[in-house]
Design a binder for these strands. Structure first.
Length: 260
DNA sequence: ATGGTCGCGTAGCGA
């Protein structure tokens, strides 16, 4: 089974790229972020025609997350528990009924947090506290669990072309990294860090300053695995070539392959 | 040293 995460930066502007990639990669489950549309405006039929069930948690103009699954979907949750007054659509979770049993999957669009320090960084750290609390509750189920998404966190200096150029940014600040480590240290495994032996790979290249052409990237799209999922991880692929297509998103898909 | 790019929605914000 494959579980992918991809920040598409508007599903409507990206529909052709999304359809092309789903056809050629054909992952079982796909977590999308920044769909940037209301649920009723999501291009549901085009995705269903490729064999996916579609669950969305959208909003107008900004944010919005979705889960696509070739297997039946149950128990969908929208938003983090205890965070009901948050008006930003950044979390959707469901249980996938795979042939081998249930797999719980979440699609996460963690706040960017810039400029930092400031209220936006405060919102990011607060949001991460809510995520940590819920992640801890989910781990107690001892299920196969994948928390996939755009975390807007550069975990290590090897995950950025030039750490000095990012100093002070909300994606790399010590408080941001510490909050991410707190979640990991509940008992999660970040899939790329476990699977990778090849040094740096990136999942995002800014549209500005020729970042893609110069390979000035960062790795901020992650798959956090419960022990029951991590034990069966076979590998991770970061689909770099997707960034070179016409009308590409600034993020590329990250795909975890499991032996279930 | 400065400005560079997208998407949304039609000005200026968010990333």
């Amino acid at each position: 089974m494959q579980v992918a995460t991809w920040n598409v930066n508007s599903v409507k502007a990206r529909l052709e790229n999304v359809i092309d990639w789903l056809r050629e990669a054909a992952p079982d489950v796909v977590c999308l972020q920044e769909i940037k549309c209301l649920d009723e405006n999501f291009p549901r039929e085009a995705i269903e025609d490729l064999g996916y069930n579609v669950e969305t948690h959208g909003q107008k103009t900004y944010n919005g997350v979705a889960i696509l699954s070739k297997f039946p979907v149950e128990e969908t949750r929208r938003g983090l528990p205890g965070n009901e007054d948050d008006d930003q659509a950044r979390y959707i979770e469901c249980v996938i009924s795979h042939d081998s049993g249930p797999v719980r999957v979440a699609s996460i669009y963690l706040p960017n947090g810039n400029p930092a320090p400031g209220p936006k960084h405060g919102y990011k750290l607060g949001w991460m506290r809510h995520l940590k609390r819920h992640a801890e509750a989910l781990l107690a189920f001892e299920e196969r669990l994948v928390l996939a998404g755009d975390y807007n966190i550069i975990p290590r200096d090897s995950d950025v072309h030039d750490p000095a150029a990012w100093e002070g940014d909300a994606l790399i600040r010590p408080e941001s990294r510490a909050a991410f480590r707190e979640i990991l240290n509940l008992g999660f495994t970040e899939a790329f860090m476990q699977a990778d032996g090849r040094g740096h790979q990136y999942s995002f290249w800014d549209y500005q300053r020729g970042a893609w052409q110069k390979d000035h990237g960062i790795r901020i799209d992650h798959l956090l695995l419960s022990p029951q999922a991590a034990d069966h991880l076979k590998g991770v692929e970061i689909c770099k070539s997707v960034r070179g297509k016409e009308k590409a998103s600034d993020h590329v898909p990250v795909v975890g392959t499991f032996e279930f």
